[in-house]
């Protein structure tokens, strides 16, 4: 049993079809979840992992129905607890490739605590957080990522609580891989899924997802052709932070210790901010950028290595066994202070 991942066995040549389960997909027509499902199914063959070694764990929500549609092992658990279930699973079975599928409510409200701990422990799991800025399954209450003043059934006069930023949260928890992608950007989503799945440790991917029924076009800044052109900032390692239309390229640079948007032609090449995924401090600044004052970064904000919880735990176990042999209950029972009565 290797503590690292599931790469040991040779996987057959799969196609997307091999990962489609026989269950009818029950999301609303037009829901962004369809595109994510399709992208995940499509990238699975690239992982090179036998499908019996793959497990999808989810909580509760529209997004959390996901495992039913994957022809892998799957467990649709309870609201918010998927990270804890996955932690136990990894500890029991470090040979499995484990995905967590969660929503903005599931992962950041009821399960916020578990999300914090799975990230800080750096459990080797790939976390896909479908952020539609709404509670879809319970029919449209505002969520912890909804903007301040959000009018929903439960907040007729507008919500009074400020949203949490999933990327900043993840980085604050010590996540070793943090990325953002968009349900309508298929190619980018597939690339992010591949990157995240190959990361060793907890990989956190925020997927901006459209709930066309309760929060349509919440991410219009990434859907509308014109706005997308203006605001999308593609993060690529070694490349400067440049965005906007060709005739109006802009750059994000550091002005002292503050990010600032300037016209690209006004900046010397040496003053550009060049993206470095291993710089977690920079990632924390990037995480907070958003339209309209800043561009919207998509891509891998941070990817660093860190000690993996279950590897440490299992190393301790291996060491104990190799030094002193496997446990022997008969010996343990008679160890220490005993006395004989005849």
């Amino acid at each position: 049993m290797s503590a690292g991942g599931a790469e040991a066995k040779e996987a057959p040549k799969y196609t997307k079809k091999d990962f489609e389960s026989d269950q009818d997909v029950r999301w609303c027509p037009g829901c962004g979840d369809y595109a994510i499902l399709s992208a995940v199914q499509k990238t699975m063959p690239d992982l090179g992992i036998p499908k019996e070694d793959i497990v999808f764990i989810s909580g509760i929500g529209c997004s959390s129905r996901f495992p039913y549609y994957m022809n892998t092992y799957g467990f649709h658990t309870i609201h918010g607890r998927a990270p804890a279930v996955a932690t136990g699973l990894r500890l029991a079975r470090p040979d499995l490739k484990v995905f967590i599928v969660t929503g903005d409510g599931d992962g950041l409200s009821i399960g916020g605590n578990h999300m914090l701990h799975v990230l800080r422990r750096n459990v080797n799991v790939t976390i896909l957080l479908f952020n539609n800025r709404i509670y879809g399954l319970t029919k449209g209450q505002y969520s912890p990522t909804s903007e301040l003043g959000k009018v929903t059934k439960s907040t007729p006069l507008g919500s009074a609580d400020r949203p949490v930023n999933p990327l900043a949260f993840a980085l604050g928890c010590g996540a070793t891989f943090v990325a953002r992608t968009v349900d309508r950007n298929i190619a980018h989503m597939e690339e992010m899924l591949r990157r995240a799945a190959h990361h060793k440790g907890a990989a956190f991917v925020e997927i901006l997802q459209n709930c066309n029924v309760y929060n349509d076009l919440a991410w219009n800044v990434m859907y509308d052709k014109e706005q997308k052109l203006q605001y999308e900032l593609r993060l690529e390692p070694g490349k400067p932070l440049l965005f906007g239309p060709q005739d109006d390229r802009r750059a994000v640079i550091m002005d002292g210790v503050r990010p600032k948007v300037v016209k690209a032609k006004d900046v010397a090449a040496s003053a550009l901010w060049v993206h470095d995924e291993t710089n977690v401090n920079a990632a924390k600044l990037l995480a907070d950028l958003f339209a309209p004052d800043f561009p919207v970064p998509i891509g891998v904000l941070a990817a660093v290595t860190g000690p993996v919880y279950e590897e440490i735990m299992l190393d301790q176990e291996q060491k104990a066994i190799s030094e002193r042999g496997p446990g022997d209950i008969a010996k343990l029972l008679t160890s220490g202070d005993t006395w004989r009565i005849s």
């Binding site: 497990v55 764990i57 467990f75 658990t77 309870i78 607890r81 990270p83 804890a84 279930v85 996955a86 932690t87 136990g88 699973l89 990894r90 500890l91 029991a92 079975r93 499995l96 605590n113 578990h114 914090l116 701990h117 735990m313 299992l314 176990e317």
Partner: peptide, 21 residues
Amino acid sequence: RTIQAEDEIAAVTAAIGAAFG
């Protein structure tokens, strides 16, 4: 393998995850 979990819910759900495994 012992997990000192973040709360009792995580403790039991980790055990359930292990049982699933």
